[in-house]
C-alpha cells in the first residue's frame, strides 16, 4: 500500500543532535534537581537543630525538670520573672492547643468531607464550577481577618447563646481555625475522590446500586488513603495555626477541658513571649523554644502517622 513512498530527507541522511551534549545537560539537570531536593532536607534539618540547640538553654536550666515540663499542669512563664516560683508545666498550653484543634477538626473534617463528597459525586458540573472558586476564596482569607471574625462575630454569637463564654475562648478560636482548614480538607479530599476511576462507579451502578451506595460504599473507601491524609494535613495545619489563636483564644494558660474559657495555645504562648517585655536570654524566654520543640515533635509525629496510613491504605489503579 505504501511501497512507492520515497524516504524523507531527514531519514536518508540523519543529522543527529550531539548525544554527548544531551547526556551532559541531563547530568547537570539531575544534579541541579538533586541539589534542590537536598536543600529542602537541609533546611528542615537546620530548623530541627536550631530548635534543639536553643531549647537546650531551657531544658538544661536548674529550675526546669523534664518530668515537670512533661507532666506539670501550671505554666507561669509570662507571669513572673522570679525563677524561684515560675512553673514550666506544658499541659495548660498543650491542652489549649488540643481544645482549639479538636474543635477546629470537629468543624473542618465533617464539613470538608461532606462537601467534597457532594462536589465529587453529586454536584452538577455547573455547580462545581461555582462552588470550587468560592472555596478557594475562603482559603484566601487572611488569618488575621479570621481572628477578628472570631472575636467580633463568633464570640458575641456564642455569648448570646450562653453568657458563660469568655470573649476570648477556645470555642470561637476553634471555629475560626476550623473555617480556615475547611477548604484544605475539602479540596484535597475532593481530589482523592475524583481520582477514583469511573469503572468502579460503573460496577456499582451495574449491580443496581444508587448514587449514595456508590459514593459511600465504594468511592469513599477506595479514596480512603487520600481522604485520611487530607484530614491529617488539616490537623497539622490547625496545630501550627498562630494568628487566629493569638487573637481569639486568649492569653491565659489554663488546664481545663472547658471550651468556654481562655485557652492559650503553644503557638499563642510563643507569640506572647516574643512580644512581652521579659528580657532576652532568661529561662522564661528560652522556654519558648522548649514549647516550639514540643510542637515540632507533635507535628513530625503526625506527618509520620500520615505516611504510615497512606502506605497502609494505598490502592493502586491501572
Amino acid at each position: 500500500m505504501n511501497k512507492g513512498l520515497p524516504t524523507p530527507g531527514a531519514l536518508l541522511q540523519k543529522r543527529y543532535r550531539d548525544n554527548g551534549k544531551r547526556r551532559w545537560t541531563d547530568r547537570v539537570m539531575v544534579g541541579l534537581l538533586a541539589t534542590c531536593a537536598g536543600l529542602t532536607v537541609a533546611i528542615s534539618a537546620l530548623i530541627g537543630l536550631m530548635l534543639i540547640r536553643e531549647s537546650w538553654h531551657f531544658f538544661s536550666s536548674s529550675s526546669v525538670s523534664l518530668s515537670g515540663f512533661l507532666w506539670g499542669t501550671r505554666w507561669s512563664a509570662l507571669e513572673t520573672r522570679s525563677l524561684a516560683d515560675v512553673e514550666f508545666g506544658i499541659w495548660p498550653l498543650l491542652s489549649g492547643t488540643i481544645r482549639v484543634t479538636g474543635i477546629a477538626m470537629l468543624i473542618a473534617w465533617p464539613l470538608g468531607l461532606l462537601t467534597a463528597i457532594y462536589l465529587s459525586e453529586f454536584a452538577s458540573r455547573r455547580l462545581r464550577l461555582i462552588l470550587k472558586p468560592v472555596l478557594e476564596i475562603l482559603a484566601g482569607i487572611p488569618t488575621v481577618v479570621l481572628g477578628y471574625f472570631a472575636i467580633l462575630v463568633i464570640s458575641p454569637t456564642l455569648q448570646w447563646f450562653s453568657p458563660s463564654f469568655d470573649t476570648f475562648n477556645a470555642t470561637s478560636a476553634g471555629i475560626a481555625v476550623g473555617i480556615l482548614c475547611l477548604p484544605l480538607v475539602c479540596s484535597l479530599a475532593e481530589d482523592a475522590l475524583s481520582a477514583v476511576p469511573d469503572t468502579l462507579r460503573e460496577a456499582v451502578y451495574s449491580l443496581g446500586g444508587t448514587r449514595m451506595n456508590t459514593a459511600l460504599g465504594v468511592v469513599l473507601p477506595s479514596a480512603l488513603s487520600g481522604v485520611i491524609s487530607a484530614m491529617l494535613l488539616a490537623f497539622s495545619r490547625a496545630l501550627g495555626e498562630t494568628m487566629v489563636v493569638a487573637l481569639a483564644a486568649g492569653t491565659l494558660a489554663t488546664f481545663t477541658f472547658d471550651p468556654r474559657q481562655q485557652s492559650q495555645t503553644m503557638t499563642g504562648f510563643i507569640i506572647e513571649m516574643l512580644k512581652s517585655d521579659l528580657e532576652y536570654g532568661n529561662v522564661q524566654y528560652y522556654s519558648l523554644f522548649g514549647v516550639a520543640l514540643t510542637l515540632f515533635v507533635i507535628t513530625f509525629g503526625m506527618t509520620m502517622l500520615g505516611q504510615l496510613i497512606r502506605r497502609r491504605y494505598r490502592e493502586e489503579y491501572q
Partner: peptide
C-alpha cells in the same frame, strides 16, 4: 529529540 531538522524536513518526515 534526535535530529537537526528544519520545519520543511520535519513536515515531510511527519507526513511520511
Amino acid at each position: 529529540l534526535h535530529f537537526q531538522v528544519n520545519q520543511a524536513e520535519l513536515d515531510e518526515l511527519v507526513e511520511w
